[in-house]
């Protein structure tokens, strides 16, 4: 893992001037992931916030080859890039060693792009898939996805007089990727550069597919202060609402264990999408459910990390 000083000298591959919102985690994640690559990178993105904010013609924030084709196919796009490179390299028509990366939001990864992702992982294309997970369809105006957590208010799982936000817990995509037996799976967040860059470095060095699920703070969709992104990521890690861990060749490793696991309210309280839960008995019952869910997942993760 290179030092921060060394990282700061690496060329900028994702440039300023993009139109991501203030406090959005996505720009940070993309920069840090690309910084971790030791070879030139070719990137694919699915339709979503990153794509619309970084590529408005005739401008681009990408200092590397970058392609966007559609919403549900970032993984298949990367698979085509990797397959062409493999073929051209084998025939001596391309000299360069390259890395390939696909960026997709949670809608493009958990939902509509899930099939393409699963297929590409099963076929063992050598590329890094990074899910920029802000837990809803933010680009179209904050609609729920299968990454949206229990109780969260979105515009299609609104908190109302009788329904307290989203009624089901999120899908555990990280574990689904682990179940694909891919050589590297990591879960990180947009606020911990050392954790993320370290995982991205391992992901790039993996000889096969690698998957990174990175929690990305969304001030607009979560109702958070743009200046509090790092603090919120810390709270996500300290409450174990979004544990930081990696699975290398099937071996679990928790990369951050809070000294004292905080109650989940410490994470929820910063976010307006959970505000309706923080008042009244009905909300408290949902919080209890969220806490029970977080505890159960954390317990399971610890067990997996201990058993060899």
């Amino acid at each position: 893992m290179p030092s921060l000083k060394e990282l700061s000298t690496r060329p900028e591959q994702f440039l300023g001037g993009h139109r991501l919102c203030p406090g959005c985690g996505e720009g940070t994640i993309v920069r840090q992931v690309l910084m971790a690559a030791d070879k030139p990178v070719v990137a694919a993105s699915c339709t979503g916030c990153l794509e619309v904010s970084s590529s408005i013609f005739p401008y681009t924030a990408w200092n590397i080859p970058w392609v966007h084709l559609a919403f549900e196919n970032a993984a298949a796009t990367a698979a085509g890039l990797e397959a062409a490179h493999k073929s051209l390299k084998r025939q001596g028509r391309c000299e360069e060693d390259l890395h390939f990366v696909a960026f997709g939001g949670d809608g493009g990864t958990y939902d509509i792009g899930f099939q393409a992702l699963s297929g590409a992982m099963e076929r063992r294309h050598r590329f890094v898939y990074v899910c920029l997970n802000n837990e809803a369809y933010m680009n179209t105006g904050i609609q729920r996805s299968s990454a949206t957590p229990l109780g969260a208010h979105t515009t299609t799982s609104p908190a109302g007089k009788v329904v307290p936000g989203k009624l089901t817990p999120r899908k555990d995509l990280t574990e689904i990727m682990v179940a694909h037996d891919v050589p590297y799976v990591g879960q990180s967040n947009s606020g911990r550069w050392r954790d993320l860059t370290g995982k991205a470095e391992k992901a790039f060095q993996t000889d096969g597919p690698a998957f990174l699920n990175v929690l990305s703070v969304c001030p607009l969709g979560w109702g958070t202060e743009p200046g509090k992104a790092i603090e919120i990521c810390e709270a996500a890690a300290d409450t174990c609402a979004w544990p930081l861990y990696e699975v290398v060749e099937g071996q679990y490793k928790i990369t951050y264990r809070p000294k004292e696991k905080k109650p989940v309210e410490e994470y929820l309280k910063h976010q307006r999408r959970f505000a309706h839960l923080l008042k009244g008995e009905a909300g408290q019952a949902v919080i209890a459910q969220i806490q029970a869910d977080v505890d159960a997942r954390w317990e399971k993760l610890q067990n997996r990390a201990e058993t060899k």
Partner: peptide, 9 residues
């Protein structure tokens, strides 16, 4: 999709 990105490559 893969045909398109491979052709672009």
């Amino acid at each position: 999709t893969a045909c398109i990105s491979a052709a672009l490559s």
